[in-house]
Design a protein around this nucleic acid. Structure first.
Lengths: 178, 178
DNA sequence: TGAAGATCGTTATGGCCATAACAACTTTCA
DNA sequence: TGAAAGTTGTTATGGCCATAACGATCTTCA
């Protein structure tokens, strides 16, 4: 499995989460169905990477600037899309409307976004970046882009594209009854 | 890009999150560095898939059984590893110790795990599954394994393996200063 | 031996997110 | 036209997770 000859292929130098993953995969390989070692490994590595990336971006980039990752992601959407209704933001984020309310509340307290009434519909509001919010998202975006490059620098351009394509395929084939 | 001939390859049938992703990628492609449309697309699809998968497993499998995904994942580790110290669980989960305390509290209230003192060390405890906890993790595991298979059924076995290998590579190359 | 430092688990505080219930408003259609 | 049904945003409640600070305990080493 490990391909370095002359070096003992043990796992002593692996991070604890990868050591655990390898151990769990081996245990599952000896269990009867529906246990599925390959599906487990894929799901585990996917969730673990996502978790580490989120935590890294949050603690290293956004928290020091007084933002959160959720707040940044919402502001980034507003930056690209312009003023947008919460229900629309919830839709493209696959998030609940109340989650959007919470994030917008936090951003509004910080003066980064504002709510505006919609003339044609008394129920609706749009969320819009303030000038301070636009400056904040622009700066945080540059730093996040640099950090993402670092994370994926270990893959070649073709590998990055293949990976994105595989992820897209799974997303497109998502179970209908989400 | 789209491969069905005779059908207009527009995005009208895409879920809103993928429509947004495609739009954002195009916008980023026209921005100067450090903007990086490929790194953005990879990170976005990775986080989105992880989020949808987590939400799906949580709402469809674990919540109906009175569990949470975090609780299940902790119990699953105990199932494989046996009684384990919180500090060890935090390590392999790349989580804070206080997060482990919280999850263990919830599980302990439900009678699924118990804390036991460690004779040799007055500070330490181990967390262990109760018989009820063992039954719960066994049943939930079977259902989660089936659901994970469904999610990844759109990939061939070789594609699943390649994807797991790419994810592992990124995880192994994670920035040292996490 | 004993004081300084490290480690373990917990608590407090605060943000994110979900579901459920609700008020306000809009749309539908008999 | 007017009542029923649907939509929008918010609130309440509760779980997860982080950081910071803390008491208790263990280890180190002068």
């Amino acid at each position: 499995m490990n391909s370095e000859p002359g070096i003992r292929p043990d796992l002593g130098d692996e991070p604890p989460d990868l050591r655990y993953a390898a151990y769990a995969r081996n245990r599952l390989a000896n269990m009867p169905p529906p246990a599925d070692a390959e599906a487990f490994a894929l799901a585990y590595h996917l969730l673990q990477l996502s978790y580490l990336l989120v935590t890294d971006l949050e603690t290293r980039i956004h928290r020091p600037r007084g933002l959160t990752l959720a707040g940044f992601r919402l502001m980034f959407k507003l930056w690209l899309l312009g003023p947008t209704q919460p229900v629309r933001l919830a839709e493209i984020s696959a998030m609940s409307r109340s989650a959007v309310t919470n994030v917008v509340n936090t951003l509004e307290r910080g003066g980064l976004v504002e709510r505006r009434p919609v003339p044609d519909d008394g129920r609706a509001v749009v969320v819009a970046l303030t000038p301070e919010g636009e400056a904040a998202v622009r700066e945080a975006f540059a730093e996040q882009a640099r950090r993402e490059r670092e994370w994926f620098a270990c893959l070649g351009p073709d590998e990055r594209e293949r990976m994105t394509a595989l992820l897209s395929r799974i997303l497109r084939a998502r179970p209908a009854d989400l």
